[in-house]
Design a protein around this nucleic acid. Structure first.
Lengths: 114, 114
DNA sequence: TAAACATATAACAATTTACTTATATAATAA
DNA sequence: TTATTATATAAGTAAATTGTTATATGTTTA
């Protein structure tokens, strides 16, 4: 009961958005590392438009933000979001997904390293 | 990182389930009071089968449990669920919904009072 | 400037979801 | 034991969701 409250309507929208395995995994990964679109495409073995559409939904609700770096667009968690505390609380129940980034690095496909 | 981890697959299923305004409100109410089906029907101004189907989904995943009392079936949060800690963490971001029960009481429609 | 690369958007199809109405089941009351 | 009340289930439908392919946009490199 400590943090700011979120309306039930807004919370259900957020939860529905996170209630997709691909998006939830994306957000968990972004919690520890920024990523660009093509990295997600590699990780999830799915089409680039599919990934792009997932990211757009997350961006529309302000959960992630983007930043262009040359030809790449780097996505990151938006820590200023009013939903960030809720998202954080959810993510802490999930196992770390760093192995997915490790796999990318081993294939030499990691881009947005900082 | 303290509590038991939940697989991303299971977590996304739970979040999708809670990503519905009616179900999320139900769970928030059940967090403080047990309720029977007909009370939810009154609260949400929707059909009895619709409510029944929402409750079944929540029950199928073990988030709520039921207990017959005469002709009524009383639903409550299943605190033994492996998902209970996650659900609790989510619910604490939501405003209290006790006013909905108050409205029922004022109409004399509260059943499962204990 | 043209080709290549990274990403976004549009249009569409398949699937899933959340209602509805009708009906079945179970308990209680008359 | 019949009527009533509470709940569940089945079947059908409309809307939402998620993927696909095709194409557009913007950046870099040759």
């Amino acid at each position: 009961m400590q943090q700011t409250l979120i309306t039930i309507t807004n919370a259900s929208t957020i939860l529905k958005l996170l209630g997709d395995k691909t998006r939830l995994t994306m957000v968990k990964i972004l919690d520890s590392h920024d990523c660009c679109v093509c990295e997600f495409v590699e990780m999830f073995k799915t089409s680039q438009p599919a990934i792009s559409q997932h990211l757009r939904k997350l961006k529309d609700l302000g959960i992630v933000k983007e930043m262009r770096r040359g030809q790449w667009i780097i996505y990151s968690l938006n820590k200023e979001s009013e939903y960030y505390p809720l998202v954080q609380n959810i993510l802490q129940h999930l196992p770390n997904q760093d192995f997915k980034l490790k796999e990318l690095e081993e294939q030499g496909l990691r881009i947005s390293c900082e």
